[in-house]
């Protein structure tokens, strides 16, 4: 009956929305401002001139592209490893009966809440002793500590929502259990798998602490620690350069967010809050 716009609510909401979005807008504006304008005593909201010199410098004068490639490899590998393991694991937790299943499900949820700082020292010792320190592989292993419990929990709730009848019907028609899994369950679970994969990618892309501890060479450094190195090593902090790097670093997230916002929010509801 009522679908007319709420004018008063709009007038209240939009100034707040803009205030919340302002830091990101300011990041964008700073990244295209000429250096002279940046350090003026009366900053202008909109730049008088637009320059892309900072972007050019980030891409050519800094190891940014190396970091970007590292992050891409790292986040993609983590996602592939974690999704492969957790799709099978979640299916097992949802559809099979065996002793210890409920305990295991609780354990997964428990590990999902575990602080990284508790695991960081032993993981560091472990990865040094097997000779993987300072490699992207060490980070993939470390990232499974938070990504795997997360993905398992999320996929488990997605798969629990798939009706069992279709699977039973396929098996009555002669399909094997795994055949029914591949032909019936996987297609049904696909939206959930996509959400989970995107989230895992974002978590890995944004991770900072393990990267700080486990990697200290540019060859394996991802964007998070790499861009912070640019801040710390600079004698004069070049804010426009850092803002340009921040924008570029967020581009994959913006793309994911723009195309999959629905997937992301549904994943959230299911995994984070509803249990």
């Amino acid at each position: 009956m009522k679908k007319r716009p709420a004018w008063i609510a709009s007038l209240v909401a939009w100034p707040i929305v803009l205030l919340i979005a302002f830091p990101l807008l300011w990041m964008l504006i700073t990244s295209v401002k000429p250096a002279a304008e940046l350090f003026s005593t009366s900053p202008t909201l909109l730049p008088k001139a637009i320059t892309f010199e900072h972007y050019v410098r980030v891409l050519t004068d800094t190891p940014f592209l190396q970091y970007f490639a590292n992050s891409m490899i790292l986040a993609t590998s983590t996602t592939i490893v974690v999704i492969s393991i957790s799709v099978l694991g979640a299916y097992s937790l949802v559809r099979f009966a065996y002793p210890g299943r409920e305990t295991l499900a609780s354990l997964v949820l428990f590990t999902y809440l575990l602080p990284s700082v508790v695991l960081i020292s032993p993981l560091y010792l472990m990865l040094v002793s097997i000779g993987l320190a300072n490699t992207l592989a060490s980070l993939v292993i470390a990232y499974t500590t938070f990504a795997l419990p997360y993905a398992l929990w999320l996929l488990r709730s997605f798969m629990a929502g798939i009706p069992q009848d279709l699977e039973s019907a396929a098996m009555v028609d002669g399909a094997s259990r795994m055949g029914a899994f591949v032909d019936v369950v996987l297609p049904q679970a696909l939206p959930g798998i996509i959400s989970t994969a995107l989230f895992t990618f974002i978590l890995a892309w944004n991770e900072y602490l393990y990267a700080l501890v486990l990697v200290n060479s540019d060859e394996a450094r991802p964007l998070t620690t790499g861009v912070m190195t640019m801040l710390i090593s600079a004698f004069n902090i070049e804010w426009s350069l850092l803002m340009a790097a921040s924008v570029l670093m967020s581009v994959p997230l913006i793309i994911i967010f723009a195309f999959f916002q629905r997937h992301l929010t549904s994943g959230f509801g299911a995994g984070g809050v509803k249990g």
Partner: peptide
Amino acid sequence: LARSLVLFPYFLSTVVAVLVWRWL
């Protein structure tokens, strides 16, 4: 659009959030 703008900080890397706020 309002929803997207409001939700986005959550998906942003903490590193980016920190850089922006330290500049602010």
